[in-house]
């Protein structure tokens, strides 16, 4: 199309139409790929899960509509109940990583020779794969040659099989998970501590603040953004605890260390599973739990934005 082929007035009109909408359209164009992928890979599967959870389907043959039967079964399924409680244990105990990370960060936040080395050593567990962490801890807990029982022997305590006892197994795995998670929180706090205003500390010191009071009233408020991020990643980490369970106990003994994500995997995708509908129903429950946290995170971020 050439300008001469069109009356100049009309051409100008079209151009100005483009011009006027440019500002409104451009951001959408740039967002489009991201939005499309997000819709296709995140939003759409969520609704698909809701849909599949209403069917009985082995992934191969015909899907049969069963209404809410899968959810009814969940209510009476003790394995599901155990998984739900274990999820709760994970959520609560995993949060210990935040104070632990904070104290290690405070401890490492000083200038002595080789501090960089110490910092990286403390950060090390976060860098290695969860699978390796799981293996290391299962050797540590091993009932026959594990270091834990050797150490318990020194203080005269009998051998225990942490991962073989349904009472202790979940705590044993959480302890393994806390190791890298603490390192993660530590690094978040270390960067946060860099941003702490020295003038405020000086002022606090002049007013006689020391030790715990200094920490609570002067340092911690300034670390609020780091705490928020640490909280977010820890909650997410707790809800996706899968690899450690898979490598350390495979959900056992007799299913007592399963969490929802692992149970969903077992029911829907493992060797003896392929109950897609039932797996999807578990996934929906897990999603609803996550939704509580997602809503909270979004709400607090929204509050923050508005506060500015």
């Amino acid at each position: 199309m050439t300008p001469t082929a069109m009356p100049t007035t009309e051409y100008k009109k079209l151009r100005s139409l483009n011009k006027r909408n440019e500002i409104a359209i451009t951001p959408w164009l740039f967002l489009a790929p991201g939005v499309l992928f997000f819709l296709f890979y995140v939003i759409f599967p969520i609704f698909q899960s809701f849909d599949v959870s209403l069917y009985q389907w082995d992934g191969l043959g015909e899907a049969r509509y069963v209404g809410l039967a899968n959810y009814q079964e969940l209510v009476n399924d003790r394995a599901f109940e155990i998984s739900l409680w274990n999820n709760l244990k994970w959520l609560v105990l995993y949060l210990l990583a935040i104070p632990a990370g904070l104290f290690i960060a405070l401890f490492l936040n000083q200038t002595v020779t080789g501090i960089r080395l110490y910092k990286s050593l403390f950060f090390f567990p976060f860098v290695i794969s969860q699978i390796v962490v799981g293996l290391v801890f299962s050797w540590f807990y091993d009932p026959t040659f594990g270091l834990l029982n050797v150490m318990l022997g020194w203080v005269g305590l009998g051998p225990i099989n942490v991962l073989g006892d349904p009472q202790t197994v979940t705590y044993g795995i959480i302890a393994a998970g806390l190791w890298p998670q603490t390192a993660y929180c530590m690094i978040l706090y270390l960067t946060g501590l860099n941003a702490v205003d020295p003038e405020q500390i000086e002022a606090g010191r002049l007013d006689g603040a020391k030790g715990a009071r200094m920490l609570w009233y002067i340092i911690l408020p300034q670390l609020k953004p780091a705490t928020f991020i640490a909280f977010v990643v820890t909650i997410i980490g707790a809800l996706r605890s899968f690899d450690l369970i898979s490598i350390m106990t495979n959900g056992g003994p007799f299913g007592s260390s399963r969490v929802l994500s692992f149970y969903m995997f077992e029911k829907a995708l493992s060797e003896y599973g392929f109950r897609m509908g039932y797996g999807a129903a578990i996934a929906v429950v897990l999603f609803l739990i996550m939704l509580v946290f997602i809503a909270y995170f979004l709400w607090s971020m929204f509050q923050e934005e508005r506060g500015r």
């Binding site: 056992g252 003994p253 007799f254 299913g255 077992e266 493992s270 060797e271 003896y272 599973g273 392929f274 109950r275």
Partner: peptide, 12 residues
């Protein structure tokens, strides 16, 4: 398969 997984867990 499904019965096997429930049952073997019970056996353990």
């Amino acid at each position: 398969a499904e019965m096997a997984s429930v049952a073997m867990e019970g056996l353990q």
